[in-house]
Design a protein around this nucleic acid. Sequence first.
DNA 1: ACCGGCGTTCCGGCCGACGGAAGTGCCCTG
DNA 2: CAGGGCACTTCCGTCGGCCGGAACGCCGGT
Lengths: 288, 288
Amino acid sequence: MVHVSHRPAGRPDATSPAPRSDVVPLASRRDSPTQRALRVLACFSPTRRELSLTQIAVATGLPMSTAHRIVGELVGGGALVRSGKSGYHVGIRLCEIAASSPHGTGLREISWPYLEDVYEATRENVLLAVRDGVDMVYVARLSGRDSVPVLRDVGRRRSLTTTGTGLVLLAHAPTEVQEQVLHGPLRRYTSKTVTDPDELRVVLAEVRRTGYAATEGTLAPRAMGCGVPVRGANDEVVASLGVVAHSGAAQPRMLVPVLMGPARGLSRELGAPSARRSLPGTRRSCPV
Amino acid sequence: MVHVSHRPAGRPDATSPAPRSDVVPLASRRDSPTQRALRVLACFSPTRRELSLTQIAVATGLPMSTAHRIVGELVGGGALVRSGKSGYHVGIRLCEIAASSPHGTGLREISWPYLEDVYEATRENVLLAVRDGVDMVYVARLSGRDSVPVLRDVGRRRSLTTTGTGLVLLAHAPTEVQEQVLHGPLRRYTSKTVTDPDELRVVLAEVRRTGYAATEGTLAPRAMGCGVPVRGANDEVVASLGVVAHSGAAQPRMLVPVLMGPARGLSRELGAPSARRSLPGTRRSCPV
DNA sequence: ACCGGCGTTCCGGCCGACGGAAGTGCCCTG
DNA sequence: CAGGGCACTTCCGTCGGCCGGAACGCCGGT
């Protein structure tokens, strides 16, 4: 069973040695049509909602005619739609498909009432995040009109090491992912950001032991956050529920009891066995 | 400019039950790899969140080996992820991309506060819908815990002719779309469902004239709804904001004033010129 | 142990994707 | 008004990689 690394990892040219003397290394970038189509779709992001054909061609590195054909087929399939004269954006069809993801929009639908519960209790920014590779992606955000807008835009990709929600996800990630993060560069955002691998290991162990992660000033100077795990059908951690607020609004760890209830409720709805029955020792009902 | 019908139309290969042993190009029904990849993705829906490889192969009509290759590439690109041993579901990567759609998740993000405003005022199911082809798709739904669950699941596809929100979208759709719907079969859900094309034309004209659509008992016997248009940057109708509730909870048209404010606010945030300045006739320029 | 289903791998043929080049319409400019 | 630049669209010959039938592990059930 060959498990393909789910990250194409940029440009692994080494797989095709074939050192033909006349091979042009520049344009030898032949990948499968499926991957090309995905690359075209990947051009779009919450920060780049609308692109022209030329922009797509440049972003993907595809020739104009090729980009034109692929985009045309994506439009025919409803994945993209034209907006205006020269411009494309992601179509509703793709949103429908994405809505089926149990880690994305589907999870958002299920989780919404629980986020509301947390919001009712805290009146602060409530977030639900999942892990994708070595990054964290927010799938849902609930922020009242009067709460501080610390973070914006669902779908933004962030580091796993700088927020409470991220640390929860990293602490329960597979070992290989953790090692990958620990060996990679740990970017510093503030003076409090943890950048020492060994120190981070200690933090992660603590997160596993206590069942929550609280940070203060690690991403921005006056922001603090707290996250707790949300578990799925196999009791593995599928998401992290957290609150982000300005420092001083509350002690981070005081948020833990508020988060635990909704997190357990959500885990139960997701089919987590450990959340199925209310155990007497709720705070450490699950191994690790 | 060739406008491809955006519906690939199921499976036309059942037409060759007699595979002659000669050169009959039964496999000539080949579509482009891009379209194949989209067909694979389109297998997933909110009602079919997890599929095995065999299920995908059957659903798309692709041979196993072909389906295996395409699915593998989609997994490599992050569009699909494995769940368990035999099973795939839509990946977060696709949700990120979909989050950039101004007609989908992006619209949902923007619209949420306005939906909340309507909910605060009505305590009923609040919906935001857009049109895709001759169907309506809900992009956001807000229903309180205690409100009647009349409709479920964002991303579900519905008819344009049976709800207030749908009628608004249809009334402001391009003429060709309206004709297509009017000439097609008009499915009857209840005894009150409008199925006569001429009668529907009158209804649509009334919707355009009054600026809202109210229905009662057209989809389900004891359900009523009301919808108003939401306009975009070109002042064209991009979405429909509506409320669905049990009959008797309120007069449908009494919901109109409640809907108009948030709808105008949302339109303004989307850049609609007509909502830019508060017109004299408008009874409330700011959301409730 | 047998078996049936499912997923995976392999390989040769063939056909449709590929992309350079030419064509079209539009807008801005001199 | 002619000219030129830009963005998009179409065309067509070539050939490389997709295609899918067939064969092969791997389980789980009986």
